[in-house]
Amino acid sequence: MSAALDTDTHIASSIRTDAPPAILLDRVNKWYGSMHVLRDVSLQVATGERVVVCGPSGSGKSTMIRCINRLEQHQEGRIVVDGHELADDVRALDAIRREVGMVFQSFNLFPHLTILENCTLAPIWVRRMPKREAEELAMHYLTRVKIPDQALKYPGQLSGGQQQRVAIARALCMKPKIMLFDEPTSALDPEMIKEVLDTMVGLAEDGMTMICVTHEMGFARQVADRVVFMDRGEVVEQGAPEQLFSNPSTERLKTFLSQILRGH
């Protein structure tokens, strides 16, 4: 966790091509009423691969990653996560949710539980872990996100950046194989973005399979094995971050990049 965001060195890739894909989306379609929000989205993420999804707001990127653990339901196409086909089978869904951790834009910590209880609840009740063991695990991850001393406080007593790091620790306590990040820094004050991104870089260094919806292009450059650009519900372009950012081949990505970069 020593990498700083402003270095140009891309951290070593840990993609395992020998294993079956961790996540497979095959021509996924979704509508809200008559609005077509995902159009034939196909995506494969290998075990250990770090994918950054970017695109203008309303392009369906959040909807796409929320389909992966079925916070949203897709209507056409296949989604296979960690070998489980996502369908109406409740058991497959339970298995997927156990293996997929998620971090939300608005943290969504449980305000009536302490930080420690936030982290131990799911391991105790879903993983059936003994309480003592769950607490040790929680303290391990809280130490990793550098807030072990806040364990007995309530979420409302922490800053936004601290809350988001707790949310990451809470997801990690389930020992997921895959982590989904839905704009994890968008609700944060600028000075808190770095502390959250640093935590995520650390995770990427450890070889976690990640899909991350974000506008943080520095993070994408440093961490991503692949950047996926979405617009109007479609995957428009994808590739290695350097190639995509320096040589965008579509007009839509060029427009998007010029808008993003003007803001920085």
Partner: peptide, 14 residues
């Protein structure tokens, strides 16, 4: 807030 339901579901709680 809806996020409370979603966070609980994403953690795999029944």
């Amino acid at each position: 807030p809806k996020g409370q339901y979603e966070a609980a579901e994403a953690l795999g709680l029944s």
